[in-house]
Amino acid sequence: MNGLTFDIAHLLAGGLVLVSFMMLYQDRLYSLLNMFALHSLVLTLSVAWQAYVQQAPHLYVTATIALVFKAIIIPVALHRMIRRLGIHREIETVVGIGPTMFAGMALVALSMVVMLRVTQAADPLAREDLAFALSVVLLGLLVMVTRRNAVSQIVGFMSLENGLVLAATGAKGMPLVVEISVAFSILIAFIVIGVFLFRIRERFDTVDVRALDDFKGKRRR
């Protein structure tokens, strides 16, 4: 492997982490969705580059799936959903942007320390990929934790899944079946959650998950 391929792969994976950071400070739903679309796009590029580097044609399928579903269909669908729910103006971060960003940096540092130490034997490209992937996963979780709107929690979940795909493509020899099944399970999760969103909305007039907490039934005093 020459230096350039490595650098490009590194750049794309790093770009994914960067977009994850950008998702952290979006306080409007539309912009969050746009960031997610960008996130998926970067993932697509990264997977495609891996496919080229590893000369694994099936990874192009993965990249296509990522592009079609995650970068186009899901953001568009979520856009429509938000419009129909009428929640595009909502500001819904729980923790302030500054602390969130600091937490995100700490998480990235943590995942670097863990991954680079654990995977000393692996080849450098996979190592970097895995470290970045773990950062993306952790940042996705952070997005889920710091939001209180169900839609943005979905977005956090999807970006977490992007991290998983990045990890999977970084490791050589992962069969396509696994990726496809992961992609489809995400799609189904998306559909189910989407349906639930409307049901929640019908019942509570909001998709703020705090309404669910109030409705969890008998509270122990």
Binding site: V94, L141, M144, V145, R147, R148, Q153, V209, R210, L212, D213, K216, R219, R220
Partner: peptide
């Protein structure tokens, strides 16, 4: 009796 976000 935590909220969903707290569980997460």
């Amino acid at each position: 009796f935590l909220t969903i976000r707290r569980y997460l």
